[in-house]
């Protein structure tokens, strides 16, 4: 009978699931990892709830890193941030395949394996979205001097984009709010960035913009409009390159 390990939808949750699944010694073919939220129960399967454990997760990520290399770990971690019902199982399969290989570092080249292919594709999706977001985020300066940005990404991007901005703007106080998940990443001047959950957003504070802000916004909109060449106008191309779903939070597309 199949055993299903239900894990939490987070990097730690999935890695703990991988650990428990492996430790159960039921044979890889008899094990399936699923996410708690999207689970529909089947009759002929045994269900086990995975309790997220930071230590177990750490062991898995260390093993992946040491045996299969940094690149594989990055792919797997990105896949864990994606929105997909079957990502947990794909990650499990990838680790199983990887550890069985003679050259374990080459696991991401085995694209003919469905699990690896899935991880590869998810990783690519997350990477592209993060890449887009690094460009499309717009900060606004609040009265209290904080640079504030709101995003609504499909994948859980804050862990990927926050280091980028921490490196770029080390001397600013900034925060990015993920609307879809209710998460904040907060960075104080010359400090490390942190991820904050369950924090209520204070609408008043984020609507109070600094004195200079409106002027800069107008300057930017002016630049955005004059830099386009009329004879070459191509709204289809524009929409292809900057999809509509991003535009809600991009300043120059909102009047």
């Amino acid at each position: 009978m199949e055993t299903v390990f239900l894990c939490e939808d987070s990097m730690e949750g999935i890695f703990t699931g991988v650990y428990d699944g492996w430790a159960s010694k039921k044979g890889h073919a008899n094990i399936k990892l699923e996410l708690k939220q999207c689970n529909t129960f089947r009759l002929f399967a045994e269900y086990i709830n995975v309790k997220t454990d930071a230590q177990k997760a750490r062991k898995v990520s260390d093993t992946v890193k040491n045996k299969m290399g940094e690149e594989a770990l990055i792919h797997i971690m990105r896949a864990a941030l994606a929105v997909d019902d079957e990502k947990a199982d794909a990650i499990y399969r990838t680790i199983v395949v990887g550890l069985a290989l003679k050259y374990k570092g080459k696991v991401m080249d085995c694209l003919s394996n469905p699990g690896v292919l899935k991880v590869f594709k998810l990783s690519r999706t997350v990477f592209y979205e993060a890449d887009h977001m690094k460009g499309f985020i717009r900060f606004k300066e609040l009265q209290n001097g904080v640079y504030f940005a709101k995003i609504a990404p499909k994948s859980h991007l804050l862990p990927i984009i926050s280091p980028h901005f921490a490196d770029r703007l080390p001397n600013e106080n900034w925060m990015i709010y993920d609307e879809n998940r209710g998460l904040f990443s907060i960075h104080a001047k010359q400090k490390e960035w942190v991820l904050v959950e369950d924090e209520q957003i204070n609408i008043d504070t984020i609507n109070k913009i600094s004195e200079n802000e409106e002027r800069i916004q107008e300057l930017w909109k002016c630049f955005f409009h004059t830099v386009s060449i009329k004879e070459r106008e191509n709204y289809n191309l524009q929409r292809k390159n900057l999809p509509i779903r991003f535009r809600e939070n991009v300043l120059e597309f909102n009047n």
């Binding site: 890449d131 690094k134 460009g135 499309f136 980028h164 490196d167 770029r168 703007l169 080390p170 001397n171 600013e172 010359q190 955005f224 409009h225 830099v227 386009s228 060449i229 009329k230 070459r232 106008e233 191509n234 709204y235 289809n236 191309l237 524009q238 292809k240 390159n241 900057l242 991009v250 120059e252």
Partner: peptide, 21 residues
């Protein structure tokens, strides 16, 4: 860590004007 800014080798597109560039 002191100044402002960094560079990414692949470059980053921040917006796309009406001509799609």
């Amino acid at each position: 860590g002191k100044g402002i800014g960094n560079c990414v080798s692949s470059g980053i597109c921040h917006s796309f004007s009406a001509d799609g560039r």
